[in-house]
Amino acid sequence: MLEIRDLHVKFHNSNREAVGGVSYTIEDGEIQGLVGESGSGKTVTAMSIAGLLPRKQCSYSGQILLDGMDLLHADRNELRKIHGRHIGVVFQEPMSSMNPLMKVGHQVEEVLLLHTNMTAEERRRKAIETLDQVELNNPEEVYEKYPHELSGGMLQRAMIAAAIIIRPKLLLLDEPTTALDVTIQAQILELLKRLNKEYDASMLFISHNLNVVRKLCTEVAVMQRGLLVEEGKTEQVFYNPQHEYTKRLIAAIPTRNKRKEEC
C-alpha cells in the first residue's frame, strides 16, 4: 500500500542529506519497525511519508506512493484530505505536539470534526470511547483536561487516541512509547497489535528500543546516517544480521534479554 522510492531529503542549513536514498514498502496490515541511532533520519522519513516536511526549508526527491498517490509532491489541498483521515501520526514529543490551550478531548476528536459530519455530542462520545481504548482511566475527566494537566505518558496515549480515532489505514508512530514505563509500554503495544488485527491497519513504528520492535513488528528496517542499511523479516534480522551496524545495535540490547537468549 505504501511504497517509498529513492527518497532523498536535504535541509538547506546542513551539508549532509538527512535521508539519502531510501526505498522500501509497507504492505497492507503490516507493522514495519524502523530503528536507528539518534539523528539517523527516522523522523524525517516519517514526516516525508506524512507529507509534513517543511518544504521551504529543504530539497527533496523521489516518490512516496500511498495507493498510487504521490505524497511527496502532492499539493496542500490533496494532502489535507489524506491527513488524519488515511494517515494518522503520533509525534515524538507529546507535550510540544499538543496545543497547550486546547482541551485534550477536543484535540482527540479534531479529526472527526474535520473529516466527518458527526455532531459535537457524537464526537465527544467517540473521543471518550477512544480514550478508554488507550487505557486512560477516567476518560471523561481526561477529556476536559488541558495538556499541562496530564503526565507525559497520559499525553502520549491521548496522542495515540487522536491518531486512531478515525481508524486510518496507515499509522506513523514516532517513538510512541519512549516516555512510558514498562507496564504501560506493554499495554500500548498490545493495543497497537489489537488495532492492527481489528481493522488491518498498517503501521510504521519508529523506536530506539529493539526489544519493543521485536515484540511488535513483522518487518524491520535499520537506518544509519540517512541510509537504509538493512531490511527484512524481524526474526531474520535479529538472528542473522548482515550489516556491521545492525550487529552492534543488537549487541547493545540490555543484558536482561541477552541472558534470556543464552539460556
Binding site: 491527513h83 488524519g84 483521515r85 474535520l114
Partner: peptide, 24 residues
C-alpha cells in the same frame, strides 16, 4: 510543533490559524 500536529489532522491554513494559533 503543535501546528505540525494540527496539519497532520487535516486542518487547512485557516483552521490552523483560527482554531489553534490565534489563541496562543
Amino acid at each position: 510543533n503543535y501546528v505540525r500536529t494540527a496539519i497532520s489532522r487535516g486542518n487547512d491554513r485557516k483552521g490552523v490559524l483560527y482554531r489553534h494559533v490565534l489563541k496562543n
